[in-house]
């Protein structure tokens, strides 16, 4: 049940959190996640706001029988899938950076012993 099966003592969290490598990891994550979140929220809320307040515009048929509203609604699906795929790719980089932070901590502990 021990939380620390590998480390004998708890890591120095404060020092790790303040380390350059960890701060760089947080910055890298923020650089992707914040704009991505803002983007999907704006893209998503544009749908109810446009259909709610500009119904005539959104009722216009723009693709065969499909109204602008329906096309926009359907486009939310590929939007979500593509953004998820992009995040998956970016997260591979975050994993490597996180691995480096953990490895640096372990190397430090081994040196200390």
């Amino acid at each position: 049940m021990s939380m620390h099966t590998r480390q004998e003592r708890a890591p120095d969290w404060e020092r790790m959190a303040a380390s350059g490598a960890f701060q760089e990891l947080l910055r890298a994550k923020r650089r992707f996640i914040v704009p991505a979140t803002v983007f999907f929220l704006v893209y998503y809320f544009a749908l109810p706001v446009l259909t709610g307040y500009w119904p005539e515009l959104m009722a216009r048929k723009i693709l065969g029988e499909f109204s602008a509203a329906y096309v926009f609604a359907l486009s939310q699906f590929p939007m979500a899938w593509i953004l998820a795929g992009l995040y998956l790719r970016a997260a591979g980089r975050f994993d490597r950076a996180a691995g480096a932070v953990v490895a640096a901590e372990e190397a430090r502990e081994n040196n200390a012993e």
């Binding site: 890591p11 404060e14 990891l25 932070v101």
Partner: peptide, 13 residues
């Protein structure tokens, strides 16, 4: 908070 941050973002522990 520092511990939570490190754990949440690195998976350590």
């Amino acid at each position: 908070y520092a511990e939570l941050q490190v754990r949440a973002h690195t998976g350590l522990g």
